[in-house]
Design a protein around this nucleic acid. Sequence first.
DNA 1: AACATTTTGTAACAGTTTGTAAGGTTTTCC
DNA 2: GGAAAACCTTACAAACTGTTACAAAATGTT
Lengths: 250, 250
Amino acid sequence: MTPVQHPVSKPSIAETESTSGNYRILLLEDDEQLAELIVRFLSERHCEVTYAANGRDFMKAVHHKDYDLIIADVVLPDASGFQLLEQFRSQLSCPLIFLSALSSVDDQVTGLRLGAHDYLVKPVDPHLLWAKIEAHLRTSQSPTPANASMTFGPLSIDLVSRQARVKDKPLPLTTNEFDLLQIFAEQPARLLSREYLFRRVIGREFDGLDRVIDMRVSRLRKKLDAIPDGVAIQSIRGRGYSLNTVHGTP
Amino acid sequence: MTPVQHPVSKPSIAETESTSGNYRILLLEDDEQLAELIVRFLSERHCEVTYAANGRDFMKAVHHKDYDLIIADVVLPDASGFQLLEQFRSQLSCPLIFLSALSSVDDQVTGLRLGAHDYLVKPVDPHLLWAKIEAHLRTSQSPTPANASMTFGPLSIDLVSRQARVKDKPLPLTTNEFDLLQIFAEQPARLLSREYLFRRVIGREFDGLDRVIDMRVSRLRKKLDAIPDGVAIQSIRGRGYSLNTVHGTP
DNA sequence: AACATTTTGTAACAGTTTGTAAGGTTTTCC
DNA sequence: GGAAAACCTTACAAACTGTTACAAAATGTT
């Protein structure tokens, strides 16, 4: 896939790789070949990978610094991954994924019950491994949603405090109005069909008769139109609505 | 694109099972036999399982109430699980696990990239499924571990002395008020439904009529509002309440 | 044990928000 | 121009929420 960069050789202790990446990952794996493969793969994805080949190095590494995620083999020369997790569980604040050739349901259940966040059976496709890693980082990194606010022209929306502003002036909205505006702001200047809005707002399929969306748009529109040079909801006959910035009077 | 008209078969809407269990799980699965199996299995483990057989029922169920976890099939009669996740991702605050016969790496990666927390390939051992469910509930349910104190903006709470402070000034609270504030502080800036609060505070299922939570919120709110630039409980009509920091008037 | 104080739940009332219905208004198409 | 379709808005009832008032329960004190 990619040319072999640097031989990882035989790292006696945890050694840090990669370009001071986005995530710090600790890899516990005694199979050197596999480890090298994983280290290279993750480094390419801008991860700072620390590699430990046995339980002793693993302990040192864990004590030495914090990680965003740990990938751990179960069968090791000097210890069991299960034991290690049991021992360090209380000290770990990041997700741990087991990566093992032990494929029985019992082993998997054991690993998960011990507190592991996932259990992958070797051999694992690198892309799947990466998707799993991203999934776990995603959930552990963002206790509060990252996209806590969004803006579109003079409109800004804070999803946390649920406050909308137009030209930095607070725009008091009811719950439903805010929800609707948020949906528009997610895909601004884009046509959103009544069917789509109905599904998002009401939560079931549009029956073709209900006027709820019309009504909500009307009410939201009234408030938006009250502020000049802000944003406005445009209706496209037979298609739906779209949120646009208002052309300043030319 | 256009809604597929599907002859409404049997369970018109989500049906609730089990003994008002510990966790509320939403199961989206069109294979009735498998679904029944899973429902029974989870019910035995004291889960309150809601079952949806198609996308339509799923949408209803998601809008109807909150869940602790969602298990979703990918291939459905009237929709794709991938589509549904894409559509509801922003509205879901709980983990979602795909459970599908589609076993290719591409499918798994797609599901995870869409935001799923896990992807299990059918057939899956029930015990493994349960271990996975527990693992995901474990990580999502305890955003705040057993810390003896917690802070959120100008608010700090000491669980040991049971004293709350706003901007370092002691805030005298009654027992119930403190308990409620603690629950809010565990998941600050996040919507907490009346159902959830009722369960946490009163300890049984919300009947839809009781106003106790309103009352307690009202009383706690009165004390919180007395301190400027502190924190405030915001109400989101039809959804619940959330604790937020107060924007000092800029 | 009896009283005072605090805390909490229920009921009732008031204000706000939302859905449905019905009638207007604009646009499209003969 | 006129009719039909699509859309907007007013009106009103129903639903939801906040708060006050008061009684019951819990707690503390003498």
